[in-house]
């Protein structure tokens, strides 16, 4: 049950806005990018209504070809989002990582620089709380929080629904911070231009090998917390090599959000993308 309005919303995601505790939108769908219209009972009755002129023996079984991608609905909706971004000249980036690698901190640090050149908006994904959206809201940029509830990833439908709640400007940048998880979000296209995976030096340098699907899907990899390198057993060169083994097209950045080291190269990369658009 939803603890804000008391409605039954198990399994569904909820959109929230920081600074507006009244605002919350339940979004239906099975987490696969599909609006669920609850007409099952109705169609069950229908099956009996149309008159069969041909006769089937009791329990006649038949094979039906489907040849359908399981993620078809998500992928179609992702393409719709992509079309919306293209038409309005919006660069959408999907930020992915395990919890605690510094996704929100990276946004907090870079958005004040980026917004001097381009309007920025953010979609935050977390199972619960508006903590991350609150941090982004404090920067003064539009943000919406998607609480996925039991869900472990954002999907194209959640983004599609969030876009309707966010008043995005043309020629802008949209940062989507996915649920902290190196496994599931890899499978779900949101319609983004690029996937950016973040790894930090307090994790293992073999992470790209342990979670290859994510690194294979990503376009850019950012190694964060390089200021801690002297204190941890993390080999940045080996990590990079591991990441390249999984995906030889990966673009590599090394940054410390804390000290600011390497952030110029990253913001320049984004600006290049925004300008080219």
């Amino acid at each position: 049950m939803c603890d804000t309005c008391g409605c039954s919303s198990e399994g569904g995601a909820v959109l929230r806005k920081p600074g507006n505790s009244e605002y919350h939108v339940h979004i239906t769908g099975h987490g696969n990018g599909h609006v669920h219209d609850h007409d099952h009972e109705h169609s069950r009755h229908h099956d009996h209504d149309h008159g069969h002129t041909h006769h089937h023996p009791e329990g006649h079984s038949r094979k039906i070809a489907m040849e359908q991608d399981v993620l078809l609905k998500n992928n179609l909706l992702a393409e719709r989002n992509r079309g919306y971004f293209e038409a309005r000249n919006i660069v959408a980036l999907n930020f992915l990582s395990s919890p605690g690698s510094g996704k929100t901190s990276l946004l907090e640090k870079t958005i004040p620089v980026l917004r001097q050149h381009v309007p920025v908006a953010v979609i935050e994904g977390d199972q619960q709380t508006t903590n991350d959206a609150d941090r982004i809201h404090a920067l003064g940029v539009p943000v919406i929080q998607v609480n996925t509830g039991s869900g472990c990833h954002l999907d194209a439908f959640m983004i599609n629904r969030s876009l309707r709640e966010l008043d995005l400007q043309d020629n802008s940048l949209l940062c989507i911070e996915n649920v902290g998880n190196l496994v599931c979000p890899a499978m779900f296209d949101l319609g983004e231009a690029l996937k950016v995976v973040i790894i930090s030096t307090t994790e293992g340098d073999d992470k790209p090998l342990k979670y290859p699907a994510m690194f294979h899907e990503a376009d850019i990899c950012i190694l964060n917390k390089t200021d801690l390198l002297p204190y941890v057993d993390f080999d940045a060169a080996r990590c990079r090599e591991n990441a390249m083994r999984v995906n030889h097209h990966l673009e590599w950045f090394e940054v410390s959000v804390k000290s600011g080291e390497g952030l110029d190269a990253w913001t320049e990369r984004i600006m290049k993308m925004v300008k080219r658009n």
Binding site: H56, G59, H60, R62, K63, M66, E67, D69, V70
Partner: peptide
């Protein structure tokens, strides 16, 4: 070489299903 492109193995499809029709 490590520059390997994946040609197949990423498929995830519903190929077909078998249904039982209602008897008349």
């Amino acid at each position: 070489s490590l520059a390997v492109s994946i040609i197949s193995g990423e498929e995830f499809q519903i190929k077909s299903m078998t249904i039982e029709e209602e008897g008349e």
